[in-house]
């Protein structure tokens, strides 16, 4: 049936009957068909804001919120030659209609997942935010990833973790790390250069290392074992410009009780009154505190509770502080 000889309005209506993952599959037919889908269904593609690669043991799920979802599963045998995702027909990756999943040869995982990502980027466009989530498995290093959330498997080597960021070293948004590491991350690691680093330190007591080497803008350390003395040490180090030099926002959540009075008694600080409205439309006044960095006069607004410390750096003049991490 000469579908391509039909008027474009009709072809558009035919395509409108397909889900996005079906259109992706249709695009494997030919380059011309792919361009036609892209040009006639571009409006639907524009609805996609984020594409997430979820890596877990034995499979990779690629999804865009509720708009589309496809799963690639590792297999050891039984792959039909098909030529999907713009890869050659010999590439061991195929569509399994029985399970509605793509299957690929475990041995060629890296090559295939990179090929799939490259095709998806080309098909849906590079203006979309691509992010990686992984659970108990290290993800394949992919290009143009802007955000990663990695739950490391047992005894992950820091070098192996570092390799996951090889093709996207400058992640602009978030790196979330969880799970145990067998060793320290090197001081000039790309992980420390992430814009926002979020680390769960429950099984990975590396908070002091992270604080020392972090070079991004925002850092949050959850489940740390920070004590009063360590917080005091950190705050004094910040004041003298030894730590956290370029960063703007820090949140430390500790599993030990902190004592604000004890901490502030040992850190040189300035108190000020904050006025803010409340539900009854009256203005309440509370006391705030900030530190001044000796080297450049930058102000660091500080909030300490029983289980957390928040530090926000707001230049020399100060401003509104919103501790949202």
């Amino acid at each position: 049936m000469q579908i391509l000889s039909l008027p474009l309005v009709v072809i558009r209506e035919i395509f409108a009957n397909f889900k996005l993952e079906e259109l992706l599959f249709l695009s494997f037919c030919s380059k011309r068909f792919k361009y036609l889908i892209q040009s006639l269904q571009g409006r639907r593609f524009k609805q996609i804001k984020i594409i997430t690669y979820n890596f877990s043991v034995g499979n990779v799920c690629i999804s865009a919120e509720t708009l589309f979802s496809l799963t690639l599963c590792e297999v050891n045998y039984g792959i039909t030659q098909m030529g999907v995702f713009g890869m050659s027909i010999e590439t061991p990756c195929c569509w399994n209609p029985l399970h509605s999943t793509y299957e690929y040869d475990k041995k060629e995982k890296e090559y295939i997942i990179r090929g799939v990502h490259s095709y998806i980027q080309q098909f849906f466009g590079s203006s979309i935010l691509y992010q990686v989530n992984s659970k108990n498995v290290l993800p394949i290093s992919l290009e143009n990833i802007e955000s990663s959330s990695i739950k490391c498997p047992e005894n992950t080597n820091p070098e192996e973790l570092e390799a996951c960021f090889q093709n996207s070293p400058n992640q602009k948004t978030t790196i979330h790390l969880e799970g145990p590491l067998a060793g320290n991350i090197c001081s000039d690691s790309v992980i420390y250069k992430a814009d926002f680093l979020d680390v769960d330190c429950l099984r990975n007591r590396k908070e002091s290392e992270i604080l020392r080497h972090f070079k991004g803008k925002r850092l949050r350390c959850m489940n740390t074992s920070f004590s009063n003395s360590q917080v005091i040490e950190f705050l004094n180090a910040w004041k003298s410009g030894q730590m956290f030099k370029k960063s703007k926002l820090l949140g430390i959540h500790t599993n030990f009780d902190l004592n604000e009075d004890e901490i502030m008694g040992k850190v040189d600080h300035i108190k000020f009154n904050k006025r803010h409205g409340n539900k009854e439309n009256t203005v309440a006044t509370t006391t705030g505190q900030y530190l001044i960095r000796e080297s450049d006069g930058q102000k660091g607004y500080l909030t300490i509770s029983q289980m957390s410390v928040h530090l926000a750096v707001f230049g020399k003049t100060g401003g509104h502080v919103n501790f949202d991490i």
Binding site: M1, Q2, I3, C29, M82, P97
Partner: peptide, 16 residues
């Protein structure tokens, strides 16, 4: 007609 077919079968239907 196209749904549920593999690439080669679809190419046949579309007669590319």
């Amino acid at each position: 007609m196209l749904r549920g077919k593999n690439t080669q079968e679809m190419i046949k239907v579309i007669t590319l």
